[in-house]
């Protein structure tokens, strides 16, 4: 899933300072799972905003609404009947959702209430961590199922570097060394011979470096 973090209240207050009528829009997908922008977070943020603005004697009207998804026209269309009643949309979806709402409701200013961070997993209640950088050409088959691009701080394809120490990365004693994980896994799988193969330079055209990406399935198009 896409993992996000809610922005600090101060930053959000600053974004919406001139406005009095706000549509606060949650999303029921990833940001709900990572507790950043689902229905519950919409409720919490709305009360925080109301309270804070009331304290400043600058009351605010907030409509709370959570869509099934903000990355699909089908759902965004549901706000069309009432979005015009508000001065600004404060979206709690990931960056993709924020942009898609903005594209759909062109007359409205749409601003983000969360910082979108990574593609990751829920490790335990309240803990998420990164797993993939969407490079567009997956090499997990070569690295014991652990991604060196996302999980090595230097995205080394032939690691580990000389800073790997006690299973941790040189950048932080709290961060696992991705290459230690790869080697442990290759060992478990009896695939250490794989390590000896040099992984050649990567073709990054399938990643962000190749420009904005788009995928099309002719057979699915209407």
């Amino acid at each position: 899933m896409i993992v996000a973090n809610r922005k600090p209240l101060e930053e959000i207050l600053e974004m919406i300072r001139p406005y009095k009528k706000i549509l606060l829009l949650g999303c029921n997908e990833c940001v709900t799972v990572c507790a950043a922008g689902g229905q519950r977070e919409v409720g919490v943020l709305a009360s925080e905003l109301r309270l804070s603005r009331a304290k400043d004697g600058n009351e605010i009207e907030i409509r709370e609404h959570t869509l099934e998804r903000q990355c699909d026209h089908e759902y965004i269309d549901q706000i069309r009947p009432f979005v015009g009643d508000y001065e600004i949309v404060l979206s709690m979806a990931c960056g993709a959702g924020v942009q898609y709402v903005a594209e759909t409701c062109r007359s409205k200013l749409v601003v983000p209430a969360v910082d979108t961070t990574f593609l990751g997993v829920t490790m335990e209640q309240g803990v998420w961590s990164e797993r993939c950088q969407g490079c567009g050409n997956c090499i997990l088959d070569k690295t014991g199922g652990i991604c060196p691009i996302a999980r090595c701080a230097k995205s080394l394809l032939n690691g580990p570097c000389g800073g790997s120490s006690g299973g941790k990365c040189e950048i932080d004693k709290e961060v696992d060394c991705g290459w230690q994980l790869i080697i442990d896994r290759l060992q478990e799988l009896g695939q250490m011979d794989r390590y000896e193969e040099i992984i050649p330079v990567k073709d990054w055209t399938t990643a962000r470096d190749g420009g904005p990406r788009k995928r099309m399935r002719e057979d699915l198009r209407l």
Binding site: N158, P160, C161, G162, G163, S164, S165, G166, G167, C177, Q180, I183, D184, M192, Y195, E196, I198
Partner: peptide, 19 residues
């Protein structure tokens, strides 16, 4: 190039030099 025989995992350090 450089090599660090003191980094971990130790058993990978000679294979890494091999690469």
């Amino acid at each position: 190039a450089a090599a660090n025989p003191f980094a971990d995992p130790f058993e990978i350090r000679a294979p890494r030099l091999g690469k």
